[in-house]
Design a protein around this nucleic acid. Structure first.
Lengths: 220, 220
DNA sequence: CGCATAATTGATAACTCTCAACGGTTGTGG
DNA sequence: CCACAACCGTTGAGAGTTATCAATTATGCG
């Protein structure tokens, strides 16, 4: 659900990551920190790409337990659903700008354009691969391994090598890793004591002092 | 990797679940209990459908910890990979017959036949949905909730309502649910004591005496 | 029928969670 | 500009769920 009502610029622009898609109408939208982008089980009307900021997608149990399935960072595309309904809720982790494409503007071509469907298939496959790796993490890894894996994953996705500027809180990390925020904090402290990471300024800026050591902790 | 060398009948038959796929050459193959069907990171040469039996697909950590991502039962299709390499290893849980279709026999049409790619997309989407639900289970649910969920899931996929004939061991269930086999056993005992399930004959035949109660334990 | 495998049950340990207190940062308003 | 409030993160103590180790009981296969 759209909680924001900036007047969206209606420029025609290509939809970056979806290189197979021809020029389609897209618009930009800004979401303040913490606001909902869409809710689970809502009809999937748009495809989203993060221009700037970060998004969390998550599921809730009836008693409020939350599992974050993924973080979407600059460049990432999310919100594509095969059956037309979202299976996750999504929120802006920090102030975030999104590019949006109406699903309908892709659909017509989707039935004729093989390249477009193939790019959907590629996206689904990428998401599937991430989910499968995360199953292994959640089902088998220790707290320290999970946190180490998280840092490695975030570095992999960050522009700058060796330095992380995490947009999300310890609670977000915890709900992503199936831990509590205290356990995440203790794991980070442990990694700091072992000398594989260092904090810079704020506690969300992390220097990966020993990526080899990190990778070794994150058993594969 | 094919560890079996029955001479495969080379009948032309439609590939059941893939209804959009035209008649393609398929063959049947039998795998004794415990044998490998394919290994992770091998090239994906075939698409598989379970005719009879059960298959587990899993990932391993270097120290042997195993996470089972899915069980494939009669009718299920597995082994489809977008990038051509398997991401899971698979084994026959019990003696299993599979129908196999060469990837190459689908590929040519895949580039021209929209319906075929759409059915691939549908399969990927189904797998993704299952994985996403499993993330929530592994990340947030208690042992009792996981086991209850497992029973509900298995009943949903079984022909007979209310009675389960589980093909897999407690260890398999444990590695699917991110638990130990002892914890699975204790959870089942607990469910039995609460009267929501009963054992019949062997300990793998389970009567769901109170599916409503089960669903209530498996918090959503 | 007997042995190997599978499942249950018990006792104890360990890891992670919960509850709580404290310190630090940020943003806001006087 | 400072003071305060709200939020975030860390740390500690203790509890709890699940894992580990071990023994016993079932089950199934040769």
């Amino acid at each position: 659900m759209l909680v924001n009502n900036n007047s969206p610029p209606n420029a025609r622009a290509s939809f970056g990551g979806l290189n197979a898609v021809a020029q389609v109408p897209s618009m930009e939208f800004s979401y303040p920190k913490g606001t909902e982008i869409f809710g689970a089980s809502e009809p999937a009307q748009y495809l989203y790409q993060v221009i700037e900021g970060a998004v969390r997608s998550y599921k809730l149990l009836s008693d409020g337990r939350r599992q974050i399935g993924a973080f979407h960072l600059a460049g990432d595309i999310f919100g594509l659903e095969f059956d037309g309904f979202h299976r996750f809720s999504t929120e802006a982790v920090i102030s975030t700008r999104l590019r949006m494409v109406k699903r309908q503007s892709l659909e017509p071509s989707a039935h004729s354009n093989v390249a477009t469907i193939l790019s959907f298939l590629r996206m689904a496959s990428t998401n599937l691969q991430h989910a499968e790796d995360h199953l292994l993490l959640l089902g088998q890894k220790t707290a320290l391994e999970r946190v180490a894996n998280f840092l490695v994953e975030m570095e992999h996705r960050s522009a700058a090598a060796g330095v992380l500027a995490l947009p999300m809180s310890r609670l977000d990390i915890a709900d992503y890793l199936g831990l509590t925020l205290e356990t995440v904090s203790r794991a980070l402290t442990m990694l700091k004591k072992r000398g594989v990471i260092r904090f810079m300024g704020t506690q969300r800026d992390i220097v990966l002092a020993d990526t080899g050591g990190l990778a070794k902790i994150d058993r594969c």
